[in-house]
Structures are given as C-alpha cells and as structure tokens.
C-alpha cells in the first residue's frame, strides 16, 4: 500500500475537564513563532460529534475532537508523506504523542489535559487510499503491528477494526496496562 493522510486520535484520562475555550486560547498561543505552519483556530463547540476546537495548519490540523462522541485529541496529516508505510505510521504516531505531551505541559491550561497513552484510534483519511474493508486491514496490519510493538511491546496491545463501511478506515488500539506517554514516545525513538 501507499498509506497517506494518516490520522490518529488519542483519548483523555479526564475528558470532563476539557474546556473548549481554554483549548482555543492555548492553540492561539501556538500560532506565532511555531516551527509548523499554523493558520488559525476555529471554534465549533456549538456542534456535537465532530471537531470542537480546531488548530488549522498547513501540513497538520490538531483538534479537540468529539467525533464518535468521545473526546480526544485528533492529529490529521493532510499532505502526502514520504517513506515506507511503516515509517509513515511511526512518524504520525510520534507526531500526535509529541503534541499530546506538549498539551499536557502547556501552562495555559487551568484544567490540564491528561491523555491515555494506550488508548488510540488510527484512521486513514482517504477512502481512495484505504477503503474501509477487511482487505485494507490485512494490508495495513503488518506495518501497524510493527510500529505498535515498538510503542507498547510485542503483544502489548489489542486491535479492533471499526467496520462501518461508510466511515473511513479506522482501527482502535488499546494497550495493555497503563503505558506512560513519555515512555511510549521514547520507545518509538
């Protein structure tokens, strides 16, 4: 395969404490002098089951996201990436974990977010590149497992393919135990 448009979502330990206005403020402070190209922050707290607070970037969008009615941080890589599928999966997973860590440490929050490093969703945001079928799962699984084994150890996680054919190709990743975000990042290299 040639996987592109990779998304990851990481869920909260403390979803009730996520305050959209705070996220808006924090994301806004990220725009000036960012090493990434950021454009603006959008507020969608008036709609359910979708983005809540969105930091729009050129390469990546980050959002406080309630899609599927579960709150988390969504990482949406929007441009074609170079490398093998394994490299792309690893790079994007590192991407979301780094941002999650940065958010946990951001002094702008009164209600600091705390993420579950072992509760993630992998999404391919392209129905052309990855139709939501068992065949796609078979094709993606080996590279996904290689990356997740690095992150959580061999056999240290469960995968669940979310099979609704109208949704994008998505796999729920649940690590065994309670992995620590910084350690997972370190293991990924």
């Amino acid at each position: 395969m040639n996987l592109q448009y990779l998304n990851w979502k990481i869920y909260f330990e403390n979803p009730a404490e996520a305050e959209p206005d705070e996220w808006f403020k924090v994301f806004s402070t990220w725009i000036p002098d960012a090493p990434e190209i950021f454009i603006d922050v959008a507020d969608y707290k008036h709609v359910p089951d979708g983005p809540v607070t969105l930091l729009v970037g050129h390469y990546v969008n980050y959002s406080l996201d309630a899609t599927g009615r579960s709150l988390g941080l969504l990482y949406d890589y929007k441009h074609p990436m170079d490398g093998s599928d394994e490299e792309k999966i690893r790079a994007s997973l590192q991407g979301i974990l780094r941002v999650a860590k940065r958010l946990e440490e951001d002094a702008g929050f009164t209600h600091k977010p705390k993420f579950k490093a072992g509760s993630l969703r992998f999404i391919v945001n392209s129905r052309a590149a990855a139709p939501n079928t068992p065949q796609t799962l078979e094709a993606v699984k080996p590279d996904l497992i290689k990356v997740l084994a690095k992150a959580f150890g061999e056999g240290g996680f469960d995968l669940e393919h979310l099979t609704d054919p109208r949704q994008r190709f998505s796999v729920q990743v649940t690590a065994k135990g309670s992995p620590v975000l910084a350690e997972v990042l370190k293991r990924l290299g």
Binding site: Y44, L54, V56, T67, S126, R127, R168
Partner: peptide
Amino acid sequence: AEEYSDSI
C-alpha cells in the same frame, strides 16, 4: 468535509 475540509 471529512477528507478535504474539517468535517463541518
């Protein structure tokens, strides 16, 4: 909206 925009 999902694939090219912001799901809105």
